[in-house]
Amino acid sequence: MENIFKLGIIVPTWNSEKDLKPLLESFQQLTCKHQIEKIVFVDSGSKDRTVDLLCEIQKIPQNILPIKVLQLDRDKGYAHALNQGIYTFNNYFPNYLLFSNPDVIYPRFFLDKILEEVKGYETLNIGIIGPRVLAPIGNGKWQEENLRPRNLWGIPQYRPKDQKVYFVHSTHGASLLVKKEVLEKIGFFDEDYFLYWDEHDFCTRARKAGFSIVIVNTISILHHPSEIRSESQNKSKIFLYYQYRNQFLFAKKNYGLISQCLFLCIRFLVFVRELINYILKKQWAYAKTMSLGFLRGLLNEKGISKLSF
């Protein structure tokens, strides 16, 4: 007899007005033999028309899309929004929860196919599943965001192109399909990160608890991260800041002293390479931002930062 799973979807939003329409359209055209119990949009105090659009979305008949909208008074971080969405299930978790960025477009058979492809791996205790993630490169073209996958230490990971499923240290935070047993065993997302590296922390804790993490190579999503890239494809300042600050937090939470030192030495080399690149291009604002994030990480800052940009 074929298993029919119960599913839930959680989507944090913050000034996501431009992203909601394509995401919602992709949700509406999903064909899924499994039961989607609820789609929870969690807004973190948006200043644009995101909340108005969410209120309109909530009027969609529940038999078409079972949508719930949760409005928070202010932005306390991506992990906080995810956790607030989890709480709406009142500890009665569906078999799987999909944590999705708002700036994602899903293919029609996404849920059915991604669950179908991991069949046969039950003995490996898969707890977190991710798809291939494609990002725009201009002229209407898309490219995989991580063509040469590396683990969190920066070491290249072998990925056979003809293999449907491959195992990784961590998967992309734009779309995480998480088995309920993972949440029951390791808890929720760590809100100390505020933004970025929280998914790596979550995946690392899951691996330590005995779960496997996989990418399904045969299904892709489209990710157009407006908060990370401008039209010129430059990384945003907020991305640079939290990426470099939170690597210190991640190391201290997940590694012993020797591993911390090794990990941070490798990350320091990455920092120096990128810093030199910005200096050579005379992009002083980016060089200053990443240096500030690196310094505050060194000083053990966590949570939301007071930033002037």
Rank of each mutant, 00 (worst) to 15 (best):
L111M: 05
P136N: 05
Q35A: 04
F109G: 01
N95Y: 15
I137C: 12
Y158M: 08
S44N: 07
K180H: 14
W142C: 01
N83E: 10
R267N: 03
Y78T: 06
P225Y: 06
S232E: 12
D19L: 06
D103L: 08
Q233I: 12
F194S: 00
K252N: 13
C203F: 12
S46P: 02
C265W: 14
S100V: 05
V216W: 06
V118I: 14
D103S: 13
L152D: 11
Y92I: 14
A81N: 11
R74W: 15
I67P: 04
Y92C: 12
T171S: 10
Q247Y: 09
L72T: 03
N91E: 10
K185L: 12
P22I: 11
V214L: 02
R207G: 03
Q84R: 13
P94Q: 05
F110Q: 00
I126P: 15
K6S: 12
W142A: 01
Q260A: 05
P102L: 02
E199Y: 15
I215Q: 13
I60K: 04
L147C: 07
I126E: 00
S175H: 08
T204C: 09
L249F: 14
Q247G: 00
G256Y: 10
L20W: 11
S259H: 10
N139C: 09
G8V: 01
I215A: 04
G297L: 04
E37D: 11
Y193Q: 07
I67M: 03
K180E: 15
D43V: 00
H172V: 05
K164D: 09
R267I: 00
I60E: 06
R49K: 15
L98F: 10
T88I: 13
D52A: 08
I9G: 00
Y244A: 00
K302Y: 12
Q29L: 14
A285T: 11
D162M: 01
Y166E: 01
F211G: 01
V270Q: 13
N151S: 05
N246E: 07
L98G: 00
Q58E: 15
S305A: 14
D103W: 13
K208L: 10
T50N: 00
Q163N: 05
G138H: 05
S308I: 09
I155F: 09
S44V: 02
I228D: 04
E144M: 03
W284R: 11
I155C: 02
T204N: 07
Y106N: 01
Y78D: 03
V118D: 05
K252C: 08
F188P: 07
S259G: 06
E227D: 14
L275T: 03
N254K: 05
Q247V: 13
V133D: 01
L23W: 09
K180M: 14
Q84T: 14
E184P: 07
H172Y: 10
Q35V: 10
L134V: 01
T31E: 11
Y278A: 03
L72K: 04
F110D: 00
S220K: 08
F263L: 02
A287E: 03
A174C: 14
F294L: 08
N246H: 03
G138I: 05
V42Q: 08
S226D: 09
Q233F: 14
Q58T: 14
S226G: 06
A287T: 07
D201T: 11
E145Y: 08
K164Q: 12
A79C: 11
E37N: 13
Y244N: 02
C203E: 08
L307R: 14
F109H: 12
